[in-house]
Design a protein around this nucleic acid. Structure first.
Lengths: 208, 208
DNA sequence: ACCGGTATCAGCCAAAAGGTGGAGAGACCA
DNA sequence: TGGTCTCTCCACCTTTTGGCTGATACCGGT
């Protein structure tokens, strides 16, 4: 059996070290590189040609994980990428899958889960943590609750505490349009006020 | 030189594994136990009598880290505890220090920082990551910005998206009083709208 | 006994937000 | 071509929020 080469991308030294230790116990998996940022990840992928990239989404400054995934797959469309992150926000999951992620693991995943995901990824199988999968299914079941791109954009700005007027200025639309979008967002999120919408957005959609 | 015994408490297997690997490279530090929850931590501390406990604050279900620190120090007032967490929310920092934490590290800390914190802790020195320290200083410099207990209570409910009327009902006070408290909260947080207050509360104060 | 901080309440007014209903333009797909 | 989705905009009205000023009451420390 061929050994599977893996590149670790995470800005936390501790996490990289932990993954390396865990993956090192498996004879068929070898960590061939580490990166602490999206930029480093691209470079390392180019140098080491890993079979699988294990990537965190939130990485301090600079390029975020999603962007890195897109660029990785642009440069090598067959590159297998597994997201390995702390959060299971709806928005992140969708964006990661869109960007071409093969799997989506949470950091509290059991080691066996991680091994399985890595092995599956090289065979084109996608593996995701249970909470992640259930969120995806929930979205498929309730397509009415999916925000349109424009609505998502507005919601994101909303979480910064802007007024309707400011939202309009920022998006180059009238206040009337802002109110229309907001009404739709409230309905989809199942809330009645902007306050609740912000709370829901930050907590559930992971818009921080 | 005596070796320093350390107990790791974190619900993420990967993080425990990473800490173990990093600490293992230091001759004077030995990991004597691991725990994935507050409950396990108390048991393990009782069994192994570690010199230092490295503890995450957010631990899925059950007892949280703060509670665990309090109990640990109740049972052994000299127990050195270092918080090792992802976030640097003001509220968490204050609560952890109150509970008796000797240090406060963020998960993106460099390995050397972690080693120094462990060694310092056994000598009664407290070590904290730079962002954490700066937040503490900021609070000391601006005591005017500290919320009163009542205000904090109200802010916490605010993040659930309640209206002024509902806040009044929930706290058994008039709407007028709610408005007074809110005005004070806005001033202290440096915001002008409830939307911004909620965003600030959830992001900065860690009220999730 | 006085003072500062906290918590409670009131009234007034302007601004912001929310609810309702309607409508036109462009994209995309069957 | 017709239907659906999305984005845009408008008017009218009610409710909510925020800014301001001022007031009473309790507690704790000096």
């Amino acid at each position: 059996m061929n050994t599977i080469s893996v590149l670790l991308v995470d800005d936390h030294t501790v996490v990289r070290s932990g993954l390396k230790a865990l993956l090192g116990t498996q004879g068929d998996i070898a960590v061939v590189g580490e990166a602490a940022s999206g930029e480093e990840a691209l470079e390392a992928a180019h140098d080491h040609k890993p079979a699988v990239v294990l990537m965190d989404l939130a990485m301090g400054a600079g390029m975020d994980g999603i962007e890195a995934i897109k660029l990785l797959r642009q440069w090598n469309p067959k590159q297998a990428v597994i997201v390995f992150t702390t959060y299971d926000s709806d928005a992140d999951i969708v964006r990661a899958v869109d960007a071409g992620a093969m799997g989506y693991l949470l950091k509290d995943a059991a080691p066996e889960e991680i091994f399985a995901a890595v092995r599956g990824a090289v065979q084109g199988k996608s593996v995701m943590s249970a909470p992640v999968a259930s969120r995806l299914f929930q979205q498929l079941r309730n397509p009415d609750e999916i925000l349109t791109p424009r609505e998502a954009e507005l919601l994101s700005l909303l979480t910064e505490g802007l007024s309707n007027r400011d939202l309009g200025k920022r998006l180059f639309i009238s206040e009337a349009t802002v109110k229309t979008h907001l009404a739709h967002i409230y309905a989809k999120l199942g809330v009645e006020t902007r306050a609740a919408a912000i709370a829901t957005a930050i907590r559930r959609e992971g818009m921080r």
